[in-house]
Design a protein around this nucleic acid. Sequence first.
DNA 1: GCTGAGCTGATTTTT
DNA 2: TCAGCTCAGC
Length: 642
Amino acid sequence: MTPLDSMNPAQREAITLSPDVSNIKDILIVAGAGSGKTRVVVNRIAYLMSEHRVHPGHIVGLTFTRKAAKEMSARLTSMVNAGRHVKLCTFHTLAADLIRGASSEHIEIIDDTDQKRMIKNILKEKDLLSTFKPKDFIEWLSSQRNQCIDPEVALESDSEDITLLRDIAKDYRTTKRNLGRHGVSDFDDLLEKAYFMLRDNEGIRKRIQARWRYLFVDEYQDTNTLQFRFLELLRGPRTQRCMVGDEDQLIYAWRGADIGYIMRSYFASLKSEETHCVMLNTNYRCSGSILSLANAIIAENEQRTGKELDAHKPKGAPVQVCEFYSPSEEGDFVADWIEDHAGRNIDYGEMAILVRQNRLARDVERAMIKSGTPYVMHNGVAMFDSLEVKLLMNLLLLAHMPSESFYLQGVLSSIKVGVGVGDAGFLKYAKEKPPEQDWLSFAQSHKTLSKKSNFIDLLHFVDQAGEHLASGALEIAAQFLVREMDLMRFFKEEERENRSETVNVCLQVMNDYEHEASLRNVKPNIIDFQEQRLLNDALVDKMERGAVNIMTVHKSKGLEFKAGVILGMEDGVFPSGNPDEFFAQDFEEDRRLAYVAITRFMENLLVTRSRNRVGFNTMGGFSSLLDHHLAKLEEKGYVALE
DNA sequence: GCTGAGCTGATTTTT
DNA sequence: TCAGCTCAGC
């Protein structure tokens, strides 16, 4: 445990607050950027265990990302060995555990790609593809469900479009129920099902509530209605809840995060003794200049607690603000700036270039190549979303469920074996095939399909892979498909090397999984593997040492860098939207986003803007988020305009 | 069924 | 600017 006297008074208070729930029901830790939030949470958990003899099995900590859960767990375990037994996981993982605890069955989870494909099928079937894009429907549905609104219940105010969306939602639910061995769940289903289970089943609810005596919630400001209600049901009369968050760092309102929840807790703490609020106001990360800029911007927001962060570090170098005529000029300058700082003994890996949108990085990327500056783009597709791994997963899922058309469709959509995915081909056969019959025997006895030798071969390979799967040899089955089918031949020559590398990593992950499954006494199987990799297996993003990190502001949340650039600070880009309509726009979230971006940096920060940017309406000028602060900040030496 | 030319319409992303 | 899609032609 970190000694308490190395903490500031607020941190110490948060760590040592009374664990007696009759004293304090809720703890709200409002933790500003760089104020040592994780350190405080982890130390409080350790403190509860060591000073108050709280059993680790009575503590649960919920995060929004697998990475955060993993990090917290690692830090806790390095402090107290018994920390291993504290449950630190994502909302979704806990939800899945609760569901499994009640039914003991594997949960078949479909990922985003499969969800999108399923919805596309439904839209096509209903001839609505020209009316709604799959993405639009997915966003609508998810936002309804995250607000705990039943998407299928008609309202009087429904427009024609909404009525259609409700119909699609019904079909989607039916389709999920009919897929797989016992139906499949999407990510929202996990939370929703766990929530309904706790809400409607008093016995289960009481048991769960009695189990968790200390409930921690990380990034509380990101809570949506469904998560909020889920948290309410998780806590029993004897549970003390500790919520940690920062309203100024809420950047996911567009995804349903509701700032009202953290604000309500804050106001409750002003009125009642039951909720205790601790403010962590000292920023240990940023130079005084950097923090002054961040503070000036965020102070304009209405929806906040009104805290102001104090810089622990001295003023340091002023934030440089530069304007350019074109993105290519901007890119060149940024590359030079990075090289200049690399020359001042800052490692490339300790620097970052943050952008509002991925496509803004293009010109800077060109400039970096030109100057030979090493960089990593963090916009990449996660390994399990890559085409080659999706193909392999679909093949294995088909091998596991040989009669299932959905996964075969997934396979056919990425490789060509003489049967296309269109109405004239695959869809027609899928309708002819009896639902219970496996595809191999159906195709072999079908007069046209039986002549499509590539297709039949494919099904033979899948069939044989299925035998390996049945004996629990997941990696062998996958390896068999890769080698015997010569999977790589389906990809373009120039892509093969990369894709083959991804597949090898995937095989390694499967191998690790098999070991891990045997430790859990689970016979390795593809459904469980899918669950593990989607919910529990944090793929650590490769923060390469020795390369500048280029990423979006959203991706940068929670990270820190010694020096770097926020690029494209202009109206129409950051804040985004159409400058002509700014009069009606709410800038609170854009300010928070700027605040998050600026507070990532410790020592040196460059903010840039380009006048002409093709594809954007940049008529507005320099970002109105900071424009009017610049003169005053320059006067005080916090900012240097160049 | 597959391929390439031409059109369209654009944040941010985790589980 | 480009990815992702449609549609005509093989």
